[in-house]
Write a protein that binds this DNA or RNA. Structure first.
Length: 185
DNA sequence: TGCCCGCCGGGTG
DNA sequence: CACCCGGCGGGCA
């Protein structure tokens, strides 16, 4: 099963257009997990609590939840990686860490392929890169939606490919039928 | 295009 | 240690 962290966290939510965003904060007052938007507040909170069962809900961090929503809807928001409690998050192995840090560098409005991420790590493990990205505890903020397949197809996403396409389109990326419009292949 | 098989890191028992 | 399983790639029909 998925690994759990039993330290207490605080969860805040934000609603926009019938989508509910949630963010979990550790005791260090850093972000420990972000939920992809859900159709109800309960589902959004559960996206966090399945990994962090000890929690309380407050509006203390709802500004951050709103920031996540803004990024989702296409705003280019700057953030500092120090806002993240990577150490207490569900990221375990050095490989997962390297992948996440590499993904964090992908600028707004651009994409990289799974293979390119592997290459940047001096590795051929593009298959494992996909797996590691799938575990990203900070979706949207760490832009795993900006990692696509080498053939120009958009590829998989924890929140479903359609959601990935939507976020990329919100960033101004041109996509036709689940493929990059200007893909060479 | 779609499929199939190879690839690599991690989780499981 | 020996599987098994993925947000993948590339070759080939």
């Amino acid at each position: 099963m998925n690994k759990k962290n039993n330290k207490p966290i605080t969860i805040s939510t934000h609603k926009k257009d019938n989508l509910y965003f949630a963010v979990g904060y550790s005791e260090k007052r850093k972000i420990i997990r972000i939920a992809l938007p859900q159709k109800s507040k309960e589902e959004a909170i559960f996206e966090i609590t399945k990994y962090h069962p000890k929690f309380s809900v407050s509006d203390q961090y709802s500004d951050t939840a709103e920031m996540i929503s803004n990024i989702y809807h296409g705003r280019d928001v700057k953030f500092n990686i120090k806002m993240l409690d990577i150490g207490e998050s569900t990221i375990n192995t050095p490989f997962e860490m390297d992948v996440i840090l590499e993904v964090a560098k992908i600028p707004y409005g651009s994409v990289k392929t799974y293979k390119e991420i592997a290459k940047l790590l001096d590795s051929h493990a593009y298959r494992a890169v996909g797996t590691a990205i799938g575990k990203n505890p900070f979706p949207i903020l760490i832009p795993c939606h900006r990692v696509i397949r080498s053939d120009g197809k958009i590829g998989e996403f924890r929140g479903g490919t359609p959601m990935k396409v939507e976020i990329l389109k919100n960033e101004g990326i041109k996509i036709d039928d689940l493929k990059l419009r200007f893909s060479k292949k």
